[in-house]
Design a protein around this nucleic acid. Sequence first.
DNA 1: GTCTGATATGTTAGCGCTAACAAAGCGGTC
DNA 2: GACCGCTTTGTTAGCGCTAACATATCAGAC
Lengths: 350, 350
Amino acid sequence: MARKVSRRGGNIVTIHDVARHVGVSPMTVSRVINGEKNVREETRAKVLASVEALNYSPNLAARSLATQDSARIGLLYSNPSVAFLSEFLVGILSESSQSGAQLLIESCEGPEGATAALEKMKANGCDGVILSPPLSDSSRVAKVLRDMDLPFVGVAMARPDPQVCCVTIDDFKAAFSMTKRLIELGHQRIGFIKGHPNAYASQTRFEGFEAAMQKAGITVDPALVAQGYFTYRSGFDAAERMLNCKDRPTAIFASNDDMAAGAVATVHRMGLDVPDHVTIVGFDDTAMASSVWPELTTVRQPIADMAALSVRLMNDQIRAKRLGKPFEPVREIRDFALIERQSSAPVGTA
Amino acid sequence: MARKVSRRGGNIVTIHDVARHVGVSPMTVSRVINGEKNVREETRAKVLASVEALNYSPNLAARSLATQDSARIGLLYSNPSVAFLSEFLVGILSESSQSGAQLLIESCEGPEGATAALEKMKANGCDGVILSPPLSDSSRVAKVLRDMDLPFVGVAMARPDPQVCCVTIDDFKAAFSMTKRLIELGHQRIGFIKGHPNAYASQTRFEGFEAAMQKAGITVDPALVAQGYFTYRSGFDAAERMLNCKDRPTAIFASNDDMAAGAVATVHRMGLDVPDHVTIVGFDDTAMASSVWPELTTVRQPIADMAALSVRLMNDQIRAKRLGKPFEPVREIRDFALIERQSSAPVGTA
DNA sequence: GTCTGATATGTTAGCGCTAACAAAGCGGTC
DNA sequence: GACCGCTTTGTTAGCGCTAACATATCAGAC
């Protein structure tokens, strides 16, 4: 008898409490909790009932200590589209709270600043890194990570790199679908505002646009293709130029929401209406899309889902590395969605 | 000899490795790591050198298991201004990765949906909850939490409630300062767009505006005070009404950035310029503020800092509760900052 | 009946860390 | 020198969980 002192906090329910309550060993409870097979169905049911009754929830700290796979995952972002970032983080958090991963977050100024941030992470005992765009697309960052021998997963990469483990949507197909939808609405003169020339996504999205136009037998008028830079201002300017054409477009497809919002502002400034005179659509479904008026029709990436998936891939990769097993890079492609709001309408409504 | 099997993952550096390297006991290393006093300066230095040399970083899982204060902190948000949310999460993450807290994130649809979310959190073994606005201001949510006996911390609450532990800025003072700044720029006819009538922040900000006007001896023209709802559209409409006044305002102070952006759009639509004809300023410094053109002059809350602080307060509170000690609610007030961008200028520039 | 090979459960020890206690070291006081 | 109180270091055990091994149970085959 007489353990000297109990360090037990107080009323915390442990696996032992459940075990005692059911009349089995803690190990059996553990097996049930972790969904292992080789537990009699009857026993499993009793344990689950007790878990419910006692309101037991496992101590993740103890678990990761015992299993030795407490992954410390670094999150690196730069230049964030804030809207993207919040959804990204929500996805990461909800997944990692289940897997019990620790998170380390760092920001950096573009790919150049990444090295310092990554070194800091490594020094803090990071086991792997998840990259948000645009870093996920940077071959420079990828090289640094490989040199450091740190596993990584890219989220929303536009450039297909078979070497790299990532979660994305199909930008080409998404742009294709949006364009197709505009054509279905009767639009023929469709303007396109490209994204930043450095971003792979820009090119891919433009190709999707072209392909859809070509498939519909519509020639793309070079006067209706403008270079943008993903900024509100660049969308504003690009739209102005297009709308001053003799034969102005009835629809404008901007490669992201900020530029689409800028385009909306231009249309309004010229005394025209969206969507009555001009349909405007964006890409990304950031906060911008539903903040402006009229709200933007746009393409949505399931960012939170993608982020959550990236955590799972990261865990798999870290585990594989610990066990010295090889890890096959995976490219997971998620479905996008066309979100139709008030900024688009059939041609010639006004 | 012959421990049966080592379950050690592999190359992980532990406190024992450091201890052996220095030639002291693990406990001494632990003391150094945790910055306890009663360690000889010489010993401390040697330990720190070894920590550095071996690139040791403590296993948070083991620590929280041993200390029994592995806090599981719930984050509840609703209706998020995405820009707010991302900064909030960044702050929370960077702090909690240091304290080793586990995070659980849930969203809900306004205060009504909060109960379900909170019950889910409690069932998942949550020890306390951090509330982001507008939930932090909801007395309903506060009541639910008190009934559940869950500690909580509110971030960016506008309503001072001495019962509640929170981190905020002084909305009154912030609105006062911004108004004062506008007056310094020579503006006299200043319009004010209020926020949603349900939000306490709306009232507080308006009071700050009034006080500054009064102090400068300027009468507030009721025609230049409009009810808004924190949405782009409401700012758009409110500004339109004001600008159609016979004697139109030279500046408009909107209670948040979305409404300010809406006001900018109205100004442009009327063929006027920002800031040459009308100065427009916002509040919050969300992504919106630097996405639109011209970029908005606004008031910034140090959201990430505030969020990080809320985690510390939460940890303190949880620890106090575990030890059965009383916890005095704290109200921490952080400094705001006036961010001057291109949407404001001295009066009469054009 | 006994042996085989499965499945189901229990036992032991240890993951890395620190709370609590124990002991050693050190200076000063009477 | 014996005693006190203080600082510094060490020892032990245990936080809650699970890997690995050990054992029990059972069905079926010969």
